[in-house]
Design a binder for these strands. Structure first.
Length: 378
RNA sequence: GGGAGUGUUCCCGAGCGGCCAAAGGGGGCAGACUGUAAAUCUGUUGUCUGACGACUACGGUGGUUCGAAUCCACCCGCUCCCA
């Protein structure tokens, strides 16, 4: 069974401890995204241990298509398969309802996708998503939802949210049934519900209250950072978080920049995930405590210092900006690996420093010092 | 020695009288990226100017023409074939 312990608060910001069968997560925490079972850029589950990673995130849709969730189940589940022994959260495939918009069709029963690999038709609804996630044996399964692109009409969002709620009922029933089956990879698989409602405050609040009644293991806020302004996103957080259960972890899905994360912690969020540190690292866009740098810029050609002089990650302790820049320009894979490791270490350290600031009652000060600074191009 | 080609902006390479500061690659310079169809995508890349525009450019020199990277002559360089 899971247990979320709220250890401390500072204004709306929270520090907590989430205990799962695969280990404890100190929150606020950033979950490292390994969509297809690996962090893109050549970073393995074993590297993650050196990067202060607490939770790995994998994707239902991608792993269902390749290699197939039945294959992973036969091999003992994601923990055995990837080598990551800590908590794993699997996204439900709901985000692909959004990102594969041109390749799908939504009905009450679920969503018909066209595989991005070979074009094959794939049907996924709440039951299918839960069954796949059960086969993957993740620690935390996410409810199957529809992530609506912003802006969206009130009418469409209202209908979509109502459907997402009905899907949640089916997700919960399916999860309970799957957990009770003998032979389940993780019979204690947790389920998080997902709040939707676009930028409509009344829909957000109403939906949050509805899903809170399901008494799930955690609650996520989805459908943000998908087209709306940062200001609108923060307003949704301001409006929704007061309606989220205090004794359950709160997860802001897919967000975001270091600045977004600090601002969301300030508004009471505990968990995050985002492809930004890994994707941007692969494009030489690196985060430092002084701001953001693009390591491909000519000005770093002769820079023999580390990416970040305040960083003690495996990359910064060994390699110069000039060398990594060269690796990028030469198309060497090592460039991506070193850059991704740095950015993930930065994100995980950011969370560690946020937690430490909360311990010391200095989060407000931390926010003031870093919230804007870490998002500035230098 | 004879014959046939060829020389284009940083590189490769299109162009065959005006719509050419010159396609397309590459390279360079910069930007984007938020539950990853993303080792991807976008912009830009002669000089000057805020812009209109002006100027300098297609091996060299001279010519034909209202107008030449494009046609002609000679020169220079490179390639291939025959002796």
């Amino acid at each position: 069974m899971s247990q979320f312990e709220l250890l401390q608060t500072e204004e709306r910001a929270r520090r907590g401890r989430f205990s799962t069968v695969h280990g404890v997560v100190e929150t606020p925490a950033f979950m490292n995204v390994a969509t297809a079972g690996a962090i893109k850029g050549g970073v393995s589950a074993f590297d993650l241990a050196d990067l202060k990673c607490q939770v790995q995130l994998c994707n239902t849709y991608h792993l269902h298509i390749r290699p197939g969730d039945e294959v992973i189940r036969a091999l003992g589940g994601l923990h055995t398969f990837t080598g990551w022994k800590g908590p794993i959260l699997t996204d439900s495939g709901g985000f692909q309802v959004f990102s594969l918009a041109k390749l799908r069709k939504i009905t009450e029963q679920g969503v018909e996708f066209r595989s991005h690999v070979d074009g094959k038709r794939i049907f996924m609804g709440p039951e299918e998503s839960m069954a796949i996630q059960s086969n993957l044996g993740s620690t935390i399964a996410m409810a199957f939802d529809e992530c609506v692109e912003n802006p969206a009409t009130y009418d469409y969002v209202a209908k979509s949210v109502a459907r997402t709620t009905r899907w949640l009922t089916r997700c919960k029933a399916a999860m309970e049934e799957l957990n009770s089956r003998t032979g389940a990879i993780n019979p204690q698989q947790l389920l998080f519900g997902i709040n939707q409602g676009s930028t409509y405050h009344d829909l957000r609040v109403a939906h949050m209250e509805e899903i809170a009644a399901f008494d799930l293991d955690g609650y996520a806020i989805g459908g943000l950072a998908v087209g709306e302004t940062a200001k609108e996103m923060y307003e949704v957080l301001d409006v929704v978080t007061p309606h989220m259960p205090v004794d359950k972890p709160r997860y802001l899905m897919g967000v975001g920049t270091p600045h977004n994360i600090i601002e969301a912690v300030h508004r009471g969020v505990d968990l995050f995930d985002c492809v930004m540190p890994s994707r941007n690292a692969r494009h030489a866009h690196l985060f430092t405590w002084d701001g953001i740098i693009n390591l491909q810029n000519a000005k770093y050609q002769l820079d023999d210092g580390p990416i970040d002089s305040h960083c003690d990650c495996p990359t910064c302790s060994r390699y110069s900006r000039a060398y990594i820049r060269h690796l990028f320009r030469a198309g060497e894979m090592l460039a991506m690996r070193l850059a991704v490791m740095h950015n993930l270490y930065f994100y995980n350290t950011l969370m560690e420093r946020i937690r430490q600031a909360l311990v010391e009652g200095k989060f407000a000060e931390f926010r003031k010092q870093y919230s804007v600074r870490v998002g500035t191009r230098i």
